[in-house]
Design a protein around this nucleic acid. Structure first.
Lengths: 343, 343
DNA sequence: TTGAAAGCGTTACCAT
DNA sequence: ATGGTAACGCTTTCAA
């Protein structure tokens, strides 16, 4: 592997000059530049990002730090969309993207999240943490205190350096519930999960608010899935139906699912039970992932701009690194009710 | 940020000793080790991976190099599953995972793919290239010649350093087509795409072989999607139906889709046209992504073990890096026909 | 068992 | 316009 010294020797100049050429500094005179470029091409020289990183104390990489109990998290459509957005922007600005899943499956320590920063692997990170919105708060505080640059997804944040990129989850769930209420639905159930996720609390809260305002607080009915898979959604729906049959509250006439993946599982169960969608039970999902419009009946859902959120987060961080911090710390991207045929 | 010198000073030892402690070398005597560990904790010291990388000429990172015209590639379920497998194994072995999309949208150059290796960012890479199986061959040859370690997905490979991880695409498509033939289907169409992908050629070839062996070569009918989205699948299906109505070959009684994403779009169109699945038209997909069993009717499909392929690729590379090269270069993971109700 | 010093490949300052 | 050189933080001989 050729080094800058090899190039310098080949071109009959000093490493400093080669460096100047690499960085396009206008000090080198054309003839010299030419010779250096030829030497670079001839030796197939690539500057070592590692050495550059050590010298300049910067890595030109951003991290995607995900704390999720599910090892298959990248296969979750929401994560995947965010990742796509991050990757898009990173590539565009010649930044690398480092995927990092902190090892601790149990309690997350600040040390673990700080590790990639401290070890010089990344200049900034996008952080997505499972759990309730107040869990891991100490970790975020620690990141803030450490003065590292990061953007957190779907969470409110205090502190100086952090950005926060969120979807309007509360609004979205409120709008969806209202739509169901307008359609005459009264027994609207919500499918959430025992595995908490910050955005879910907000979605739940939007649902609750709409129910409360409609004077239907007594009808609030929540069934948890064990995870965020369609299989889990099916289980949650099954449990819900069983509970209603057993304990008396009549079957729901509508279901608002915590996300589309759950909704798909729930619809499957409803169909199997011979319940018509939306005639007997309306279903509304959340996220508007690619397949929402292709399930049968096409899924009415609240669109969350996950791809755009990924892009925004990356843009904020990179701009900040390049000396253009945004004035807004908190970025809320709008959600939108996409009415199809399931509810 | 504390350096190894700070720790050394704090513990009253030399940097060498701190280094020895960090790497768990048994030369340091317990009392010293203790003092060093305390200093590390006190200063919240993290060794710089960058400096380590520079010194040891190794990065402890593997790259996922994806050449795909679609910027949203991580949202494709297949990619996402592979990525999940890679991430799982990388984390397990304390390797970082670097996502890299070469900038060139047009013709890929070897230089671009070599860049992350040469610049010391990664020790090895998993490579996924869109295009036909012979396109970009020169690039893979160049990688081989450069002596870098990599595993290529869904492609045959010659050469010394490369691994190849594939699914049994030809087998899977052959089995699926045979199943349709056994069920009495005769006019079986295949949905592929103008955007080629190595695995698709094999799937297509399995389909062709089965049709040929059944003496139905004349019935081979192929409709391309403009991309690999469900919307594209719908377009391909629409075009197919239009062509049949216009030009005479009777409507297909079965569709083998290049992948599940396409299949979902195709099913949507069939339903809209009032065609019953599978009574009028059977549909079989490919991949068995999470939602295959939840569409209506549940999708019969060829399961491709994408998650396992990701894991395998990462395992091979990491084992190789740690001095345990596998004897097998070429790894073919089996596919399996999952019969549900669509075909 | 521990320490001193060279070197990994680059950049940035200071000379020339 | 170009070159010399120290420094980035670490590991690795080699010597003590």
């Amino acid at each position: 592997m050729a080094t800058i010294w090899d190039v310098a020797r080949e071109a009959g100049v000093s490493p400093s000059t080669v460096s100047n050429v690499i960085h396009g500094r206008p000090v080198v005179k054309p003839a010299t530049r030419q010779r250096v470029l030829e030497a670079i091409a001839k030796l197939d020289y690539h500057p070592s990002r590692v050495a550059q990183g050590l010298r300049q104390q910067t890595s030109r990489a951003i991290g995607f730090l995900v704390l999720d109990p599910n090892p298959r998290w990248p296969a979750d459509p929401l994560h995947a969309e965010v990742l796509a957005g991050l990757s898009e922007i990173a590539t565009e600005h010649d930044y690398s993207l480092l995927l990092d899943r902190p090892p601790g499956n149990g309690q997350l320590t600040a040390r673990e999240l700080l590790q990639p920063f401290r070890s010089g692997q990344i200049d900034a990170a996008v952080v997505a943490l499972a759990g309730t919105s107040d869990s891991h708060q100490h970790v975020l505080d620690a990141l803030n205190q450490a003065g590292v640059l990061f953007a957190v997804l779907e969470r409110e944040i205090e502190g100086e350096c952090a950005y926060s990129v969120m979807g309007a989850n509360e609004d979205g769930a409120y709008a969806a519930t209202q739509k169901l209420l307008r359609d005459g639905r009264r027994r609207i159930a919500f499918l959430d999960s025992t595995q908490m996720w910050p955005a879910i609390e907000l979605r739940l809260s939007g649902y609750r608010r709409a129910m409360r305002e409609a004077g239907l607080e007594a009808n609030i009915l929540i069934s948890p899935s064990p995870d965020w898979t369609s299989a889990g959604g099916a289980t949650a729906m099954l449990n819900l139906l069983a509970r209603c049959e057993r304990e008396g509250p009549p079957c729901p006439d509508a279901v608002l699912a915590g996300n589309d993946v759950l909704a798909v599982g729930a619809m499957h169960v409803l169909r199997e039970r011979g319940l018509r969608i939306p005639a007997d039970v309306a279903v509304i999902g959340f996220d508007d992932f690619e397949f929402a419009r292709y399930v049968d009946p096409p899924l009415t859902t609240v669109r969350l701009p996950a791809y755009e959120m990924g892009k925004r987060a990356a843009e904020l961080l990179i701009a900040h690194l390049e000396g253009h911090p945004a004035s807004q710390r908190r970025h809320v991207l709008p959600t939108e009710l996409v009415v199809r045929q399931s509810g």
